[in-house]
């Protein structure tokens, strides 16, 4: 066996080890109910805002505190604390992906990914039946 072949095998083994160890860091998408059972574990929630309870955000008191409530498609509900500013069009967002952990009664959120009707690009399907810039 040539040295280069040995090196090749060693490197491939290293890459595999890296990938396997990476899988240990992976998280998962959960429902609110299942996330509550895994208190303290980092999870991703796909939810929408529960608009029956007002969003608490007052940059005068603390620009880094946002509190709001969400629910998921299975009806689970939880309150969320996010130590950052309120994302711009959060209230318009169709759904939110929240990253964080359940802590006691609330969800301690570290990042919010928004799924908007149109975010970075137009969504032609969202516009299909309704014009945007028409004036009669």
């Amino acid at each position: 066996m040539k040295k280069t072949h040995i090196a090749l095998l060693v490197l491939i083994a290293a890459a595999i080890v890296v990938l396997i160890s990476y899988t240990g860091d992976l998280s998962s998408y959960e429902t609110i109910a299942s996330a509550k059972q895994k208190e303290g574990k980092f999870v991703n929630l796909i939810v929408k805002m529960d608009k029956s309870i007002p969003v608490q955000y007052d940059p005068i008191k603390d620009p880094n505190l946002l509190e709001f409530n969400v629910q998921d498609s299975l009806g689970g509900k939880i309150s969320v604390v996010y130590h950052n500013t309120m994302p711009t069009d959060m209230e318009k967002s169709e759904r939110l992906v929240l990253k964080g952990k359940v802590q006691g009664e609330h969800f301690e959120c570290s990042a919010i990914v928004m799924k908007c009707p149109s975010k970075y690009k137009d969504n032609p399907n969202a516009m299909k039946n309704q014009p945007v810039t028409i004036s009669n």
């Binding site: 940059p59 005068i60 603390d62 620009p63 880094n64 130590h83 950052n84 952990k101 570290s110």
Partner: peptide, 26 residues
């Protein structure tokens, strides 16, 4: 780093569990 305007009553929440720094200033 938000060092002003933070209520002393809230100091304990300054270190959020997510380790998320309070990066916004008003």
């Amino acid at each position: 780093w938000n060092t002003t305007g933070i209520s002393p009553l809230r100091v304990e929440s300054n270190k959020s569990p997510a380790g998320n720094p309070r990066e916004n200033i008003t």
